[in-house]
Design a protein around this nucleic acid. Sequence first.
DNA 1: CTGTTAGCGCCTTCAG
DNA 2: CTGAAGGCGCTAACAG
Lengths: 314, 314
Amino acid sequence: MPNRLTINDIARLSGVGKSTVSRVLNNENGVSQQTRERVAAVVNQHGFSPSRSARAMRGQSDKVVAIIVTRLDSRAENLAVQTMLPAFYEQGYDPIMMESRFQPELVAEHLQMLSQRNIDGVVLFGFTGITPCLLAAWRDSLVVMARDVSGFSSVSYDDEGAIELLMAKLYAEGHRQIGFIGVPHSDVTTGKRRHQAYETFCRQHDLTPRAVLPGLGMQPGYDHVAQVLTPETTALLCASDSLALGASKYLQERRIALQLASVGNTSLINFLHPEILTVDPGYAEAGRQAAAQLIAQVTDVDAPHQHVIPARLV
Amino acid sequence: MPNRLTINDIARLSGVGKSTVSRVLNNENGVSQQTRERVAAVVNQHGFSPSRSARAMRGQSDKVVAIIVTRLDSRAENLAVQTMLPAFYEQGYDPIMMESRFQPELVAEHLQMLSQRNIDGVVLFGFTGITPCLLAAWRDSLVVMARDVSGFSSVSYDDEGAIELLMAKLYAEGHRQIGFIGVPHSDVTTGKRRHQAYETFCRQHDLTPRAVLPGLGMQPGYDHVAQVLTPETTALLCASDSLALGASKYLQERRIALQLASVGNTSLINFLHPEILTVDPGYAEAGRQAAAQLIAQVTDVDAPHQHVIPARLV
DNA sequence: CTGTTAGCGCCTTCAG
DNA sequence: CTGAAGGCGCTAACAG
């Protein structure tokens, strides 16, 4: 692993000056085809690669980005990160990872730490409590995931679309008593938007809404499903896969047969409960998009931009 | 986020030379208390932090490590990484993450990429197909997780101990017909060792072993449980939590009541199936240990070392 | 105790 | 088209 060769060695080995080697390395023009090939040969032969630190010191960019997830074991975020990583690597960026655990203070600490690293940019998975002022210093080099923070780039999911898709499908299948289990409105996206989309659909189709908003997680799902169930209920819409998991456990225990539907298409739920109707919020695409957007932004070819990923029934 | 101050600025601002500032920054001795405090004040006041690249170039390390997980959504690995990250950050190391997806070629590619990055060290979550020669170049700066590769540092789980713990408990509860569902022996740890520990316990306690080794994952668990069930079977031991999840789905569907036991204590399984007897292989501790070992090793205060984390009933 | 002087490996003028 | 010379921010000798 020691890459002890330097640009000087390569220069000597191929009988040219360092600047020429540098030009070849950076694909600059102003080098004869002959020389270029000769240098390239030596470079490849020795598996030489320029020192990133030296580069960084000269220019600016370290080519390092950070990805701050809420929890490492969030299935949804995993799916996004899974496409994000390769996208970054392809462009020569090294992604370092951090966990916020839904704590704004931890985000602050992490960003603090990152600012001492001369990081190029940050992808932050948003959650309740993230405020613009917390991120102020990063206006140009930050992409928020799953949430839109005014003034910042973001890649978010189509909450309304996802709910509409599911509701329309349930409705088409004949369901008229559809319960909803979600997240408090303090969570704008998973909470407020999804719930409102549900309410809206109910209103437009003359259905009686019955909703409960205990919050994210399996346990809340389990504990609170009962509250939206009436003897007539035939279907239940869940704002997230963890809620669906919890709710479905409850229903199974009570032997209550209900058509479940949920936002969030993960392998876990697909295996455990293939009967659940799910919609893919586009995690994979969101990951790619976030990486692309961040790179575009820090490479100065793009301005902050709000991007919404369309949902897709599966 | 631009840390535009340099050591020179600090020197000027506090009326000393750069070397003095450097000494203060690195807590070296040979600076009067007076001067030290004055410089420190200026540093804090301006929130100055030295450029990592410049430091790295001057011969110090980059303070960057890589963590190569098999899958970002492995619950077991998540738990280990969750403790590993803070451990690295505390020591000033930036962890970059990669996914191997159980493909040795991908590991090779990643290591290749890392060697051009002048990385300090690597934590690699092992799997079948990882050979010493693949890792040869990293002998001194690599820690393998969950597997021991001869000649390399490793942090592994106590496979035998975990199985014994579970079997002993099942036995103590009166179970005499205990099935086993595991992983082929090509996987030395989760596969061979756990299965053999099962066989050994059966032999020692005069039980009739009944095992099937379809491989990791929920689907294999679901598809193959039936093969180890007899009318007399009262308990089933699973080599991993995903197998347990699969098996338990099958049993639930068939309304077969069985005491399940499984290696792998994750919140998912604890919620979904609290009735399953689980043993914690010590993921959290393993993560801490791996980080500590890697740091000790690259700081040159330690030699490669095989570490085994004890299992613990929960 | 403290300042001065060299580079680390690279990119970037600037001459040739 | 190419090489020589500087300097990025920092640390490590070496002088005072």
